[in-house]
Design a protein around this nucleic acid. Structure first.
Length: 441
RNA sequence: GGAGAGGUGGCAGAGUGGUCGAAUGCACCGCACUCGAAAUGCGGCGUGGGGGCAACUCCACCGGGGGUUCGAAUCCCUCCCUCUCCGCCA
């Protein structure tokens, strides 16, 4: 959410940034016109209120002095203002709402340095703030060398009899899956491992958040008002609650409507939760396998920082997500998303794409974004310095990483010629010591 | 689900139609006293918005929203939240 004052002071930068955003025709002039109209309404209203207040005060004094005649005269005088004030209040509400609605529908402005582009083809490889392709390659696991034609995860899973899309469809329809036996445990092991990593080694506080949230929370992080179609809702009383599309929503809203002492920052939260997405706009895409499901598990990281610290925190968070793949031994690449591929609330986003041998391609497994004060303004999340100065916090979120997609990556990268799957060393403790799924033991 | 009580500044807690942005206490900040501290005294201490170069001034805010009234923390409606009792329940 933008501050209209900021737009007024930075109209040119605002227009330049919005022009880079796909499909954003909104210009500063449109918003400033609304704001001007709003101010005019306020000026008129306040003028009338000021006169009313003064006269009402006199009425109080007259009454106190038992001067009924004077009180009556004053009341008659002020009565005339009543209609003006009520009209004005109504107009102010309408003007506020008009401006607020327009501001709430605006996406965040891309940071300097974010590549321009219309879609994912405009994304660029990223090797770290001071990195190169060579330095990055040194810290990233290599592609597995498979001496046979690799299979896709669903082929492996179905052959094992531990991944069942048909029965899931009978129960819940398309885009659901049933995992059983060792694959079910592998799913749990991956989530557990990743959450432990972030909590034990990366300084995140483990959180068990609500999975059903109010519209206000979704407005705060930016899923509403524009992306209602992507969400599942359930009726609740006279209203509704949404199933979280990502734990970013409850984790970020942890600081909503609050003022955090600067000394408390950064706050780092991590959670392992199911996520629910209607995938309304992706009919026909990735229909095979469990790459794109209505329900999936994800470890999410959220950081709340000062404005000064958010850019460094972004790099740090990317590192936390990368560590997962490094420890799992899965080859990946990092892409800096272009303006056309970034999410609504992001100033800058890195995607981590895991190598999937079965698909012979890279697929997104994590997305790490810095949002600046965009969400903080929507949530009214502020911080106060030791000197008492207040400002909006900066928020960041990143997957660390998507559990279902990590399962796919493990399966495809650790598959053996006989269709069994080796269990990565770091997961074995979480698998009761199991070293292979489907192999002869 | 039924019955009841409540939501006021960082905290505690007055205030049931008029000069109340709101007593008082605690906390906090400054000053005085002190070698220093405590205690004490004096002063300060909310947020958002409009106007103004500025000193400043005006408007709004007592859980959220709407209404009644010349005037609302106070009355009415509605929503949210908290607590107590009953019922149900993993």
């Amino acid at each position: 959410m933008f501050d209209i004052k900021w737009i007024r002071a930075n109209a040119e930068a605002f227009d330049r940034g919005m022009a880079r955003r796909k499909g954003e025709a909104r210009r500063a002039a449109d918003l400033l016109a609304l704001d001007d109209a709003r101010k005019a309404v306020i000026a008129t209203l306040q003028d009338a209120q000021e006169r009313r207040n003064a006269l009402s005060k006199e009425i109080g004094q007259a009454k106190a002095q038992k001067d009924e005649a004077r009180a009556q005269a004053l009341m008659a005088e002020v009565a005339a203002l009543k209609d003006t004030i009520q009209q004005g209040e109504k107009q102010e509400r309408e003007a506020d709402a008009a401006l607020r609605d327009m501001l709430a529908a605006l996406p965040n402005l891309p940071l300097e340095g974010v590549p321009d582009g219309a879609d994912e083809t405009g994304n660029q490889p990223y090797f770290g703030p001071n990195g190169s392709e060579t330095t990055a390659a040194a810290s990233r696991p290599a592609k597995p060398e498979l001496s046979f034609a690799p299979r896709q995860h669903f082929e492996l899973g179905e052959a094992l009899g531990q991944m069942d899309f048909e029965v899931a469809a009978k129960i819940s329809g398309a885009r659901f899956v049933v995992l059983k036996s060792h694959l079910a445990r592998l799913e749990r092991a991956i989530g557990q491992f990743m959450l432990d990593l972030h909590v034990d080694q990366h300084g995140y506080t483990e959180v068990q958040p609500p999975l059903l949230v109010r519209d206000e929370a979704l407005l705060g992080t930016g899923q509403l008002p524009k992306f209602e179609d992507d969400l599942f809702f359930t009726p609740h009383g006279d209203g509704r609650l949404a199933l979280i599309p990502t734990a970013e929503v409850p984790l970020t809203n942890l600081v909503r409507e609050s003022i955090v002492a600067e000394a408390e920052l950064p706050l780092r939260f991590a959670a392992l939760t199911p996520c629910f997405r209607s995938e309304a706009g992706s009919a026909g895409r990735d229909t095979r396998g469990m790459l794109r499901q209505h329900q999936f598990n994800k470890v999410e990281m959220v950081s709340i920082t000062t404005p000064e610290a958010s850019i460094d925190e972004h790099e740090r968070m990317l590192g936390c997500a990368e560590a997962v793949l490094q420890k799992l031994g899965i080859h990946y690449r990092v892409m800096a998303l272009c303006t056309g591929d970034m999410g609504f609330g992001a100033q800058k986003t890195y995607d981590i794409e895991a190598w999937l041998p079965g698909q012979d391609t890279y697929r997104e497994i994590s997305s790490v974004s810095v949002c600046g004060d965009f969400q903080a303004r929507r949530m009214d999340a502020r911080y106060r310095t030791a000197e008492g100065k207040m400002g909006y916090v900066h928020t960041l979120n990143g997957s660390g990483v998507a559990v279902g997609r990590a399962l796919i990556a493990v399966m495809e990268n650790y598959q053996q010629e006989d269709g069994s799957i080796a269990v990565p060393a770091v997961l074995q403790p979480y698998m009761g010591g199991l070293t292979s799924i489907g192999g002869r033991s």
